[in-house]
Design a protein around this nucleic acid. Structure first.
Lengths: 205, 205
DNA sequence: TGCTATTAGGACCATACGGTCCTAATTTCT
DNA sequence: AGAAATTAGGACCGTATGGTCCTAATAGCA
């Protein structure tokens, strides 16, 4: 992938996560990526829509590398990994200073009803995310109670995190996310078998 | 409040919850409310922004009447009320056929970073919502464990519900919300004192 | 009867938007 | 050296947007 392209993608990702897709104009992206003009931009992307799709892809890849990867670390206990992953989401959010949410939640809220193309792609993102958690739960199943529903629990985790990021953004207070993350860990701990100890779960507070 | 005004507000509320604020044009609202033209609209609202603020107010009032009111029902056990409230959120969502989210979550995601005026107002909405839950939890405190943090728990409930509504909208599958609602009740049940029984908590599934 | 609020309808404006087209200079690679 | 890709810059277009202004018909009310 040409360097310019990724440069454009990065600039667009920042702008979109700050202002949303609709409110980010192609001219904004051109300024942000320091291109010479419209034709320069349209040399790399055939439309703003395509730009949006590729930004979403890239955001997911980054999230997969920096977040989801933790869920697959082979040397760590699965439930410990899940806890670390939740910490990573908090860390990722604090990088942007409480501002700007999970890029998926943003786009989801903005475009889920309005733009089918985006809706489908965001659905796929959530599905891939959920599937990572599901296989982690499957791996942890010896430590979990028999009646744990991995599909439901994985959705719950994602929803709680997305909702938390949203609230954090609105309140501009990272401690909202931190509190919810801690509670979410407690909720997960609730599904651990009586015998198996929950891994060193740092209850902040 | 004149009838026309509420008519405009209703039309705008529908459009905004479907397409978002930015993507809803004043002309769309005029068509939706069957006004005669721009001047007719600007006779009632001095700007689109003001319209947005009042729509948000109205949406909150409706939510307060149809949802939050349950939290204050004097004759029902507080924890039972909380459970009923969660059911009400699910019901409210299913009315719109899975489409269109909690109007607050929508606006929050779209405008929290971009528009300070909206951000502040949405923050106030969340705060009033959270405060209702907090006083319910205070009322229920004899049944709850001593270490229950009402501030955190109320935030958790709201975040989980908002996240759930978002995911439901993306997946176009109401069962997502239903599952998360059920899990959320279980999480709340986790804070009940060992002695006190959790009120008839209908675990769907 | 008059005054005011509402309804109606349209012209108009500046700005912004996504997108196309064209020309030409500059790199990069073969 | 020469072809192909990249960078540069600008004119242009159709459409949409929020908003203003003006005129006039119709209701409602004192």
């Amino acid at each position: 992938m040409s360097e310019r392209r990724t440069q454009i993608l990065d600039a667009a990702a920042t702008l979109i996560s700050e202002r949303g897709f609709t409110s980010t104009s192609v001219d904004d992206v051109i300024k942000g990526a320091k291109l010479s003009g419209k034709s320069h931009f349209y040399h790399y992307f055939k439309s703003k829509e395509e730009l949006g799709y590729e930004v979403l892809n890239r955001q997911f890849e980054r999230f997969a590398e920096r977040g989801l990867a933790i869920l697959r670390e082979p040397m760590i206990d699965p439930l410990e990994r899940l806890s670390l992953f939740i910490d990573a989401v908090v860390a990722l959010q604090s990088e942007s200073g409480g501002r700007r949410g999970s890029p998926f939640g943003n786009l989801a809220a903005e475009l889920a009803d309005a733009h089918e193309g985006f809706r489908v792609r965001i659905e796929a993102v959530f599905e891939r995310w959920a599937s990572q958690i599901r296989s982690l739960l499957w791996e942890a199943r010896p430590q979990l109670q028999d009646d744990v529903d991995a599909v439901r629990l994985s959705r719950f985790i994602i929803a709680a995190l997305e909702g938390a990021v949203l609230m954090t953004r609105v309140k501009r207070d990272l401690s909202v996310l931190e509190g919810i993350a801690a509670d979410l860990k407690r909720f997960i701990g609730m599904h651990v078998r009586d015998g198996a100890a929950m891994p060193t779960h740092r209850n902040l507070e």
